[in-house]
Design a protein around this nucleic acid. Sequence first.
DNA 1: GCATAATGCTTGCATATGCAAGGAATATGC
DNA 2: GCATATTCCTTGCATATGCAAGCATTATGC
Lengths: 148, 148
Amino acid sequence: MDDLNVINALRLLQSAEELRARLAGEFSSVHGISVNEFFLLMQLRNAPKQRLSRTELAKRMHVSASTVTRMVAPMEKIGMVDRMIDDRDARLAFVVLTSAGQDRLSEALATFAKQAGYAFQDRWTDAEMKQFSALLFRLVAGTPANLT
Amino acid sequence: MDDLNVINALRLLQSAEELRARLAGEFSSVHGISVNEFFLLMQLRNAPKQRLSRTELAKRMHVSASTVTRMVAPMEKIGMVDRMIDDRDARLAFVVLTSAGQDRLSEALATFAKQAGYAFQDRWTDAEMKQFSALLFRLVAGTPANLT
DNA sequence: GCATAATGCTTGCATATGCAAGGAATATGC
DNA sequence: GCATATTCCTTGCATATGCAAGCATTATGC
């Protein structure tokens, strides 16, 4: 295990899982959403017109189309998102972020920022934060899923 | 979203998910194991005597104890791991890595190294790989789950 | 020593997810 | 224009996972 590629991949996956586990706990207890629901809302917020097709959401979130269908149903029921059929193509059922959904997302983002702070605070300097940001940008840049 | 903590946390989570999705595909088709099974084998390989209790595995893998129970059952059936009851404490049921499990893990590690190469190759210099490694080490250092 | 608490594991139930099939709408080849 | 293919979404089934309860074993308080 002296391969730096392997070491970095393992550390990347493990630190991400740690952070995700922490987020899951607070998202669930404080905001009543899952981490995946948070990411779904984030994708919508960053999309033009705050909307995306289910297929596009599936690709960006690395889940199947059926998962998106089933994730969206309860979110639609409580008004965080809306359904909107395309005028030209009746197959497309856009998922649209509602104002209630934006509010919920803003609250969750505060928790996200707090946890992100815990994760990096007192471990990295400002300069290192920028280094890390630049390095990771090369991994996520160009993917349509990139939220940053 | 000008908070560098938030940006870095998002990029960390997203790049990890991308890598994990790629690994899942090849692990499943080539080696017949899931990413989580791979990590379970990795934890055993790094443990003293190549064995851990189910509770310890659950903590390190950020899953519930029942998940470990259910993950281990089929792996035991095909001989990748063994069960071993502790002499002093009959509650403890260690999961032990077998030689067949080591072989399977070695093959999967080759795939892992290949995918890790794809992820970082042509994006980062050697110096940057070392920088990244050092930064991430501070995140995972000290956790018993750390595989590196 | 014994009653109670704590620990380690398993199991029933509920939820989450992927795959494959199906239905509806649109695109393509001719 | 029409038959066929493709695309988008949904649904049935199988698997994966967490939580809470239960069981067996060990630790603790007195």
